[in-house]
């Protein structure tokens, strides 16, 4: 094909500028070829299910030796969900990696010359990360649950169908809320423009309340830690199964999470538009 032959064809349609769907398709064409995105997506799903199955095996093998008080606490809904650690980290990394590599190698300048309306680029990445981690989060949640139940049944432990209200709420809300930390990671990526800082930032936000929250005085747990996205999300996912001073009413928890997401994305858009690329 000669350049001259296609030249005329191109100029005929030159008047129509790209729209949001073009930006979305371009971002998808770009991100889906990145190995960091593929690996974090695959590992988040596979490792979370493997971890749940493995922990199930350990529980099955040792259950008979547990003290009666601990045996009474066995929960066939909660216990298979331990693998969530892997999916939370994997998908959060995916969110950061949808942004920062471009800043590392300067590709972002090409992105913003092709799409000078930078908010479109941010929103396209938001949609792609949301879609990927929603699908991946659902796969991970159901995978963990089924793997756990399968292992428990072979060990003659109590199991629970996923179709009970309690189980369905936990499994579905894990999937639905999975995009939260990836999106916060994406925003931190846009703000720090650095892979190391982005991953560190999102993991601190993810784990700090888990690790340091319980060490704080009760008032702080109830009024400060509870406003962080992790505890707010957990009150939606397992608020009906577990008690914690950091949990809110599930509806309030959902609102807190939504506020974090809206704030983080709005801040990203504002900064990306204002700063030099």
């Amino acid at each position: 094909m000669s350049s001259v032959a296609t030249r005329n064809g191109t100029q005929a349609q030159a008047a129509a500028g790209p729209g949001f769907t073009d930006t979305l398709a371009a971002e998808w064409a770009k991100l889906r070829t990145w190995r960091a995105i593929r690996w974090s997506f695959a590992l988040a799903i596979v490792l979370s299910i493997a971890m749940s199955a493995l922990l199930g095996l350990v529980i099955g093998a040792t259950y008979d030796d547990w003290p009666a008080s601990e045996q009474a606490q066995f929960d066939p809904i909660l216990y298979p969900m331990n693998g969530i650690v892997a999916s939370l980290i994997g998908f959060a990394v995916l969110g950061v990696m949808a942004v920062t590599p471009e800043y590392g190698n300067g590709l972002v300048r090409l992105t913003f010359t092709a799409t000078p309306r930078r908010s479109r680029v941010v929103l396209a990445k938001v949609l792609i990360v949301t879609a990927l981690t929603l699908v991946g989060g659902m796969a991970s949640a159901f995978g963990m649950y089924f793997a756990g139940q399968a292992v428990f049944s072979t060990a003659d432990l109590p199991t629970e169908s996923v179709f009970t209200g309690d189980a369905m709420r936990a499994v579905l809300s894990i999937g639905l809320l999975m995009p939260v930390f990836p999106l916060l990671g994406l925003a931190i990526g846009f703000l720090t423009r650095s892979t190391a800082a982005g991953i560190t930032g999102v993991l601190v936000l993810l784990w700090a309340p888990e690790i340091f929250g319980p060490l704080l005085p009760g008032w702080w747990q109830e009024n400060v830690v509870s406003l962080l996205p992790g505890p707010a999300g957990d009150s939606v996912i397992i608020g009906h199964l577990v008690d914690s001073r950091t949990f809110s009413d599930p509806a309030v928890g959902a609102l807190i999470v939504a506020a974090w997401l809206v704030g983080a994305i709005a801040l990203s858009v504002a900064m990306v538009r204002r700063r030099d690329a």
Binding site: T6, T10, D22, A26, E27, A29, T111, A114, T115
Partner: peptide, 10 residues
């Protein structure tokens, strides 16, 4: 390809 798509180039 992705650059072409972003700029709505054939």
């Amino acid at each position: 390809r992705w650059v072409a798509r972003a700029g709505k180039v054939s």
